[in-house]
């Protein structure tokens, strides 16, 4: 579904993505795991063109995105590319970025109405459907400020789903939440399996990744160090960096002498 080839992204003298290459399979939940500062969030933003990148290529289904300096293509070409990418790829932001002046339902139906010109009644039907899918039936008329963090995240997920993208990106879905809610998020993500979406989750939380992932890509130093099924990466990591990261977690989870 998604193929990333030698993607390079620089901010001035800093190279954030250093020839990152990996594939993401269709209808699977893939976690991009790695320590903070490894470039995984930037990678995610490149996947739906919130960021441009300098070199390499990304293919999403039949959409090709090539690296290049800003302003390389014409404005119209860029707008067109952005539209084609985002038709396929939705995103759930780390801070959710809900629209505070709209209700939960308003947040979900806004884009179908303005972008797809869906009649309100139909958009509301779609909106109610996705809100109930994420367990928020009955909260349609609440404003974001009246919802808990976990509920806000669910609205944000419903909002992305309502545009019916093939791919949904999740940027650090557990970082803004109470630790007790992490399990709920994991359950929710797995409950979306029947939608056959390609889900890409960026996280630094090993336990969370272990709980949800079909596939895991270990990211460090701006590139994918290792990729495989969850079982492969977690049980038999083949790279030293991956092993060190996993070990640092295990030590934290099991202090010396606890066993």
């Amino acid at each position: 579904m998604i193929e990333v080839t030698d993607v390079v992204k620089r901010y001035g003298a800093t190279t954030v993505l250093n020839r990152a290459s990996f594939r993401i399979a269709e209808a699977q939940l893939t976690t991009i795991l790695g320590p903070s500062g490894c470039g995984k969030s930037t990678m995610l933003r490149c996947l739906n063109r919130l960021e441009r990148f300098d070199d390499g290529a990304i293919t999403i289904g039949d959409v090709q995105v090539a690296g290049g300096a800003a302003g390389a293509g014409s404005r119209a070409d860029e707008d067109d590319l952005v539209q084609r990418v985002r038709e396929k790829v939705g995103i759930v932001f780390q801070a959710f970025n809900l629209f505070p002046h709209l209700t939960a339902l308003g947040n979900v139906i806004e884009a179908p109405m303005t972008v797809k010109h869906m009649p309100r009644a139909q958009a509301e039907e779609v909106g109610r459907h996705y809100l109930s899918r994420v367990g928020l039936a009955g909260k349609e008329s609440h404003y974001p400020a009246q919802l808990s963090g976990g509920q806000q995240q669910r609205v944000s997920i419903a909002r992305a789903l309502a545009m019916e993208p093939a791919v949904v990106l999740f940027d650090e879905p557990t970082s803004a939440l109470d630790p007790r809610l992490v399990r709920d998020v994991a359950k929710l993500l797995r409950a979306l399996d029947d939608l056959k979406k390609t889900l890409v989750v960026v996280s630094h939380d090993l336990d969370f990744a272990r709980a949800i992932s079909d596939q895991v890509i270990y990211f460090e130093g701006g590139r994918a160090v290792e990729a495989g099924t969850a079982a492969q990466v977690f049980e038999q990591p083949s790279h030293a960096e991956t092993k060190a990261f996993l070990d640092s977690f295990n030590e934290g989870a099991n202090p010396v002498g606890a066993r």
């Binding site: 739906n48 919130l50 952005v82 539209q83 985002r86 038709e87 939705g90 995103i91 932001f93 801070a95 970025n97 809900l98 629209f99 806004e110 884009a111 972008v115 909002r159 992305a160 545009m163």
Partner: peptide
Amino acid sequence: GQMEAARSLR
């Protein structure tokens, strides 16, 4: 993030 969210929704 508001503009980003809106733009991400096309």
